[in-house]
Write a protein that binds this DNA or RNA. Structure first.
Lengths: 346, 346
DNA sequence: TGTTAGCACTCGAATATCTTGAGTGCTAAA
DNA sequence: TTTAGCACTCAAGATATTCGAGTGCTAACA
């Protein structure tokens, strides 16, 4: 068990190091006003803390820096986020969500932008899982005799569209029938049930009433599968470059490459879903390459159901307290905002 | 006027430097098989070329590197692109455009991806200016009593949509009238005429037949203005990081920052429109910050009308010949592909 | 007159050497 | 248990040294 003094010293070191990115020496701590023990004492405590694995030395005669374990302790026990809600933050976040935006995508983008701007870290926003979304209407608008565009509108106001070739041997009336059947069968049923419906009932009806339906059916069902990488928004990747831990170009390249592959980020963020606030520190992250990267995630909800998550990516040497406060409030704001947006019947 | 030998030397230096990124010395050139004059002679010629401003020395006892003026000469006179069409390129580009893609956006993305992959430079693709596009259909689909989504389909198959609040005091029948008027008036008229039509005829009709039209009219007309930054696609920004001229983090940051501001890139690329192939070298570019950046642009056309441009951004130390070949062919392929895509009546 | 061999000179880059100072660990005394 | 004191460590910065690729110039040559 750590003594009160040891905790204090650990905290001091983390706070210092987060700010300066320089190893923290015993003397600099002993100079603090509220410290009435000497540098030598601190050195002894530091040695103990190091032995326990909370601190490290970059080299034998340098000051200490926190280890991952040290950050972990700091985050888990030394932070009390709830108390410390400076008003400044609240209001500015509130303002963002009060300015009624009616497009989900716009809200997402804005969230990512504000998150990264306020923290100077990279922000990731995962769009809401639309598994409960229902089809509002499917329309097919012919562009010519050979092509048409299919438009799908969900009750959340999301619009998806796809241009496709009209099969040569398909008549206009067949096309109409096709659309009618899909509309009748799918309207108001949630997206997640589509696949089942498609392969049973609908397939049967189509076979019965529409000639040459296979090709078009195939084209469109593929097209309307929700696309993962359109659901993920970044912001502030350039902020990384300002951090001293990224003075090395190769590291930046790796990091940006990793971010570019949205699938990876998606699955990582998605795994965090339904877990509320999460702080991953350094190698705790799946991607061992990024030893000195931390990631904070939070989830947001619509009407109380968790539907997505947002995240902040920065150096392990992160301003956890501030970042956690901000991400929490953003998640709350996002929840409120989206809930309002989706409650058309209000 | 430069002698044949001087031209040869300049070319040799550019070719060498492009490959190695190291200053080129007289001896390394004299070792070439097809050179039968000595290093000393080359040194003399080099001194002359330097005096004329085609070459530079990073420091007084180093080899020479090409100046912007040198590159310019190289590009304008020493390159004959047309002859040298290795088949490898042609077929792989053709393949890309042969795989029938029916979404304009998909074609653009793919073009950007292939461009950057083949060249290892940053690619920019500016979507086709749709000034001649015509409205196919405007639809409004109510989501609830308070909200609706407006969907606009152009004859090119482009779909634009916007969620908006239905004004409280507007009835369903008014909403229908509103849509009908817009459809009647705008269908088949090109986008560039809308603004005029809107403010004259349509405004008049609306005032006459629809109550409370102002708010909604205003919401939607703003929403359907084409958005610049959705029209521009990048790819391969990470390629920059591999270039030795970008070993400095600050430089990368500036560059990426510049690219992130799509408006700038857009206007630069747009200005190149209707000029065919363009090569900007170093400080010839508007942005003097990027002294050692070159940019190659080419335009593409639909049915012979230039509608957009594509570009490659790389170090001045660029493989101009190869890059020009590739971008030219991509532009051609894009033109063919888009022309086919837009010719629904074929 | 153009070309070339030869040679002294230049200067960046790599390597080694020195200096400094912040920081430590340990010991012995309070 | 705490602290003053002191020897010791080591990265980082400053300085010096070496090395070699490359130049410019001169004088001889074809």
């Amino acid at each position: 068990m750590l003594s009160r003094r040891q905790l204090y010293i650990l905290q001091a070191i983390v706070d210092d190091y987060v700010q300066t990115a320089e190893p923290v020496g015993s003397r600099s701590i002993s100079k603090r006003e509220d410290v009435d023990f000497s540098a030598a004492t601190i050195r002894n405590e530091m040695a103990d803390l190091e032995e326990m694995g909370f601190l490290m030395k970059p080299h034998s005669s340098s000051g200490r820096i926190p280890s991952h374990k040290g950050y972990r302790l700091y985050v888990d026990q030394l932070l009390n986020v709830t108390e410390n809600n400076h008003l400044g933050l609240i209001t500015s976040v509130q303002q963002l969500f009060d300015s009624r935006v009616s497009e989900v995508e716009a809200v997402m983008r804005k969230t990512a932008a504000v998150l990264s701007e306020m923290t100077n870290y990279v922000s990731v926003v995962l769009g809401p899982a639309m598994s409960n979304t229902k089809l509002k209407q499917l329309q097919i608008i012919p562009l010519s005799t050979t092509q048409a565009v299919a438009i799908l509108v969900t009750d959340s106001g999301h619009v998806e569209n796809r241009t496709f070739d009209i099969p040569r041997n398909m008549s206009i009336s067949d096309l109409e029938k096709f659309v009618n059947i899909l509309n009748e069968q799918l309207t108001d049923s949630p997206i997640k049930q589509w696949e089942a419906l498609m392969s049973n009932e609908i397939e049967r009806l189509l076979r019965q009433h529409v000639d040459h339906y296979e090709k078009i059916h195939q084209d469109l069902s593929a097209a309307f599968k929700p696309k993962v990488n359109e659901q993920i928004f970044y912001n502030g990747m350039l902020n990384l470059l300002a951090q001293p831990e990224f003075k090395d170009v190769e590291k930046i390249r790796q990091m940006l490459e990793w971010l570019e592959d949205k699938k990876e980020v998606y699955s990582l963020l998605n795994a965090m879903n339904s877990k509320g606030l999460t702080v991953k520190i350094g190698e705790e992250n799946r991607f061992e390459l990024f030893d000195d990267i931390s990631m904070i995630t939070a989830t947001y909800a619509i009407d109380g159901d968790t539907v997505g998550s947002i995240g902040l990516i920065g150096p392990t040497r992160m301003q956890y307290e501030r970042a956690i406060q901000i991400i929490t409030q953003m998640a709350d704001g996002l929840s409120t905002s989206l809930t309002r947006l989706y409650r058309h019947d209000a």
